[in-house]
């Protein structure tokens, strides 16, 4: 009889010690350690090359973007090209090269889109067309190319807005450019203008 009791006591002791060890580590010690760790901050960088700033009507020009994540590992890397002087880009803009993991999204005027780097929590209506390239996930130091061939159909200024955003977006470090002109989404853009002559 006493041996059985002793066995039970030992068993109870093992259970209590093991459970205390488990809950102390999983509920108190490790969570504190993980929360204290800084969150990952991806940081995009964009290099743009414009083939020409003056063309004649009927000619094409190219706008090439090389984007890079210069920060930590991120979930999504976005490069956007928008065309504020246009309403329809169907026969004007063609994608010449593209190496992002997800297919490009063609956004038309009137579509609901995220704004102010909110990841979709704030929504606005698109005022002009744009193309969004997306790569998921994005490792540090990786580069992506999107090359657009554009053939304007009207004389005058043809404007292209370019920007890049990485998600999670925790601060201004996670978008490029970090200052300058704001677009219809309330987000900073690089502005490129090509004069289309008769």
């Amino acid at each position: 009889m006493p041996i059985i009791h002793l066995k039970k006591l030992i068993m109870m002791g093992i259970v209590i010690i093991a459970l205390s060890f488990y809950f102390t580590l999983t509920v108190f010690i490790l969570p504190e350690k993980y929360i204290a760790k800084e969150q990952l901050v991806p940081s995009p960088y964009l290099e743009i090359e414009l083939s020409s700033v003056e063309i004649t009507l009927g000619e094409s020009f190219r706008i090439s973007s090389i984007s890079e994540n210069k920060g930590d590992y991120g979930d999504i890397h976005i490069v956007s090209a928008a065309f504020p002087t246009e309403q329809n880009i169907e026969n004007i803009v063609q994608i010449a090269s593209y190496d992002f993991s997800n297919s490009p999204q063609f956004i038309e005027p009137g579509e609901e889109i995220g704004a102010k780097y909110s990841g979709g929590l704030e929504i606005v209506s698109a005022q002009y067309p744009s193309i969004e390239a997306m790569n998921r996930p994005v490792h540090p130091g990786t580069k992506y190319v999107m090359d657009l061939q554009i053939t304007p159909d009207e004389i005058g200024e043809f404007i292209v807005y370019m920007k890049s955003i990485d998600i999670p977006h925790s601060s201004s470090v996670s978008h490029f450019p970090q200052s300058g002109q704001l677009d219809h989404q309330g987000e900073y853009v690089l502005v490129y203008t090509v004069n289309v002559n008769p």
Binding site: L19, Y22, T26, L30, K37
Partner: peptide, 22 residues
């Protein structure tokens, strides 16, 4: 990739199963 570090936390979950088994 961003959760790999927490594998040690997840592995600890074997403890309640061992205890219950005992």
């Amino acid at each position: 990739f961003s959760m790999l570090e927490s594998a040690e936390f997840y592995a600890l979950n074997l403890i309640p199963f061992v205890i219950s088994d005992l």
